[in-house]
């Protein structure tokens, strides 16, 4: 079963983190992605620039907007798609994600049947 782990953080919390800790966090995140690859379960991954540079298209393209679709304190920062047998395994991996300590990781099962 494929699950996508969506990471959410508050950008304002990030702004408070000292640069050396930020570097450490990046290192941890890199190691985490490495572990997912090592386990042979990583099916896709990306992390995103802040919502300040987002552009939103809606109403069939009639509306093009500067900014994110939804204004919220927590923003989507990235995703990892993993292929594991069940929700418990997905939860175990989400717990290991460094973002789970400073923000939240939302687990969404895939709707695609392959």
């Amino acid at each position: 079963m494929r699950y996508t782990l969506l990471t959410y953080t508050r950008p304002e919390d990030f702004a408070k983190v000292p640069p050396e800790e930020l570097g450490q966090l990046k290192g941890l995140f890199g190691a985490y992605i490495g572990a997912l690859k090592e386990a042979g379960i990583l099916a896709g991954v990306d992390w995103l620039q802040p919502t300040s540079v987002a552009t939103t298209v809606s109403e069939g393209g009639d509306r093009i907007q500067d900014g994110p679709y939804a204004d919220s304190k927590e923003t989507l920062g990235g995703y990892m798609t993993i292929d594991v047998p069940d929700l418990d395994t997905a939860i175990a991996w989400a717990k290991k994600c460094p973002i789970a300590k400073i923000g939240a990781v939302e687990i969404r099962p895939s709707a695609s049947e392959e």
Partner: peptide, 10 residues
Amino acid sequence: KASAVAFRVP
């Protein structure tokens, strides 16, 4: 069903 909660003893 949708998120495949496993039927198992933890």
